[in-house]
């Protein structure tokens, strides 16, 4: 069903158009003397609002342990296929014996990333976050592919309170082992 929008017939001054232009020019003239609204970028930096979606990064838990388990859900969900993960098993570590799996390689191609944040949304381990970082530059394409080391460097540690592996350990020590 097409929806027809009735148009008001134009008045004479609207049809002559020049008065309309003059009215417009009044507006632009006022803007000419209005104060600037932009920010002097390198000196002034915007306050990053919470929930800002900057460069995706990998984070560690408060004890500095790798959180990502290379489930590849982010790789799966990423609309422009920017993420590439090589999963692999990891050695038992005393503080998280159940991990078993972690990324051997984790690349995010920032030339493809569209900052949609779906990777953060989907991550079951809360290991990938789009943080404050918003400037990004490089001389080659390869420089803009963030590898695992770079991602952890950018990501740092997030003070979340899940301590998943500590809970596992506590359960094991509690005696619920076989």
């Amino acid at each position: 069903m097409p929806y027809v929008v009735e148009r008001k017939p134009l008045t004479l001054s609207e049809r002559i158009y020049l008065p309309q232009i003059l009215a417009g020019m009044r507006v632009t003239l006022r803007r000419l003397f209005a104060p600037n609204v932009t920010m002097e970028y390198p000196e002034q930096r915007p306050a990053i609002p919470t929930g800002y979606r900057g460069v995706p990064t990998l984070v560690k838990d408060p004890h500095g342990r790798e959180k990502c388990v290379s489930c590849q859900l982010c790789e799966f969900v990423c609309p422009p296929k920017a993420i590439r993960i090589t999963p692999g098993s990891v050695e038992d570590q005393p503080d998280r014996t159940h991990v078993e799996k972690g990324p051997q390689a984790f690349d995010i191609d920032m030339l493809r990333c569209i900052y949609c944040g779906l990777c953060q949304e989907v991550c079951p381990e809360e290991a990938i976050f789009l943080q404050n970082q918003y400037t990004l530059s490089g001389y080659t394409r390869a420089e803009l592919v963030n590898d695992k080391a770079k991602l952890y460097e950018l990501g740092g540690t997030l003070p979340d309170q899940h301590f998943k592996w500590d809970k596992k350990k506590a359960a094991a020590e509690h005696g619920n082992t076989h």
Binding site: R31, L32, F33, V37, T38, E40
Partner: peptide, 10 residues
Amino acid sequence: KVSAWMQGRP
């Protein structure tokens, strides 16, 4: 410059 000022930037 004129463009910038009219658009609210320096």
